[in-house]
Design a protein around this nucleic acid. Structure first.
Lengths: 149, 149
DNA sequence: TACTTATCATTAGTCGACTAACTAAAGGAG
DNA sequence: CTCCTTTAGTTAGTCGACTAATGATAAGTA
């Protein structure tokens, strides 16, 4: 039996994720918020003043990526960096007022879209869906560890 | 009730897709194939000599993106461009021998990973999973059309 | 204390993706 | 036939993400 990528579940899922991000972006276009920034804004809204390494880990991004993102967001006035008083190596990141407003808009947008794209799901379906995703994640992580770091 | 992005299904799904791509990449690192290229190679393996516009549509990418991708893949010797004899505007894209080998490796890698990350799914679960994803896709598309193209 | 190692962050370079502005060829309307 | 419009593709500039190499501070050890 042949393998057709166009029919693969992973392909379909990739398409969903892409369209999801595009929709988020459309709702946020008046807030100086760019496509990769919503997760970061949400994390900062939860816990302000985290160190970059920690932030990077939480949004599943490498520290080098975060450095550049934060440079841009600082320039846009969404966040600011303040040095840690006890350790000169670490830079802690804080939301500005504008950043806080943006984070609120992000929360609203995500709630809207998440509701919208799950509106035809029953509660059982949501739970099953989550369980299946979690299973995939575990299996993918196991596989990654097999084929080397 | 509060909205926590970390618990959102869309967040989880994004994480799965990212890890999936990373695993594909790990399996393909000896073939001069870069992260965005597998879908393109598969499409060309199915139908060689497509015009760029059509290819772009099929892999869900803008024509401008494809131009740059193909430049790089041409430089890497994976594909080649040949002008269409009946329409001087269109450039048709063909796999080279190396490209065909790479496409085979991609097929093998995707099959492996897809099997691996669905190995704990029953047939019913796979079908349901697909149905739910399809539903999400439809709802997201409807929503995108609402908030303006 | 001085040297070495580990940790946090940044820089440089590359690939993936997008938008906007542009070139060039093909097709139509008058 | 000439002008206008549409269509295919490219270029330029930006953002997201990664790796590898570097700087700078902290912590551990001889």
């Amino acid at each position: 039996m042949d393998f057709h990528y166009a029919d693969a579940l992973t392909h379909l899922m990739g398409h969903v994720v892409k369209l999801y991000r595009h929709n988020v972006d459309l709702l946020l276009q008046d807030y100086d918020v760019f496509p990769g920034q919503p997760p970061l804004l949400l994390r900062l809204a939860e816990t302000d003043g985290q160190m970059q390494k920690e932030l990077a880990r939480r949004i599943h991004v490498k520290p080098a990526t975060l450095t550049v993102m934060i440079n841009r967001m600082q320039k846009a006035g969404l966040v600011e960096r303040r040095p840690d008083p006890h350790d000169q190596r670490v830079a802690r990141v804080y939301l500005t007022e504008k950043g806080r407003r943006a984070a609120d808009a992000v929360k609203e947008a995500l709630r809207t879209i998440e509701n919208r794209c799950l509106e035809h799901f029953s509660l059982e379906e949501k739970l099953l869906f989550r369980r299946l995703l979690k299973q995939m994640l575990d299996d993918l992580e196991a596989f990654r560890n097999e084929i080397g770091k």
